[in-house]
């Protein structure tokens, strides 16, 4: 009910009122992406999941091993930007490759 939404928001504000949040550690101290799936979803999937409006090839339907994924991630290709190690580290790239291989699907006939 629309009329009851102010109190909910106000309650949230009251709960957080006066609270100053701070993050002590750099995000990459504890790794930027906790899993390959998370990195895939946040960095790769928009362009590489095979939607009609995808920008790049569907990585889940090709024969992409870790070396190929690493090469294109580091060099970029055409519209694909290159990703530095500071942006997506080597361990994450390995995890992304493992995710892609584990979720491989044959193209529909």
């Amino acid at each position: 009910m629309p009329g009851k939404r102010w109190p909910a928001t106000l309650a949230a504000l009251v709960l957080t009122a006066g609270m100053a949040h701070a993050q002590d550690a750099r995000l990459d101290d504890s790794r930027m992406f906790s899993t390959g799936e998370e990195a895939w979803n946040k960095v790769c999937s928009r362009c590489h999941s095979g939607h009609e409006n995808s920008v790049g090839p569907n990585l889940l339907q090709g024969s992409y091993d870790e070396d190929i994924i690493r090469f294109f991630a580091r060099h970029g290709s055409g519209p694909m930007p290159a990703f530095t190690a500071a942006m997506v580290d080597d361990t994450t790239l390995s995890q992304i490759a493992a995710y892609v291989i584990a979720n491989h699907k044959e193209p529909a006939e």
Partner: peptide, 15 residues
């Protein structure tokens, strides 16, 4: 200079 390693959210004041 690549500042990617200087990536702390130092403070957020919700109020």
């Amino acid at each position: 200079i690549d500042f990617r390693h200087m990536n702390r959210i130092l403070e957020v004041d919700a109020e």
